[in-house]
Amino acid sequence: MATTEHEGTEVSGAPHEASFPPFDPATFSSTLVWLVLTFALLYVVMSKVGLPRVASILKHRAEQIRGDLAAAFKSREEANQAAAAYDKTLAEAKASSQALAQETRARVKQEQDAKRVVIEAELNAKLQTAEAQIAERKASAMASVGEIAGEAAAAIVTHITGKPADPAAIAAAIAQAKV
């Protein structure tokens, strides 16, 4: 057994034990017994409690990560599908709106054409009436021109000759000039 004379640092160098402490067989039995006890305890604690716990933590985390990744992939898939559906709806809406615009344009054009035809017809009718009136006025005016020319010719003849003119001769002369 180691003696108590070695306590502290103030030990004189002389009474060293003969053997080098790590090779001192006197301590082997107790060291071995305690090593077996403590190592067995360590092994039991590690294999029954510590390591299974870490294993379950790591497994749980791996599962969590795998689950999260799967959920993320699923969400992405869903988002892609939603985007595709959105694009499809948008295209459909575009197409239908274009069709509607086309249709509306055609209808409006048709209506306008119909109105225009009516208005043109009215205008033509008015034009014809107006032309007829103009012709009538012109005719009546031309008729009056004969009378005025006769009166003027009679007055001129009376003024120059001093005697009334022959109406028949005047009318004949006017008719001749008119043609």
Binding site: M1, A2, T9, G13, H16, P22, T27
Partner: peptide, 12 residues
């Protein structure tokens, strides 16, 4: 007194 081997001594 500073003995480098002392640290390896097994004391009850």
């Amino acid at each position: 007194g500073i003995d480098p081997i002392h640290q390896f001594r097994v004391e009850p």
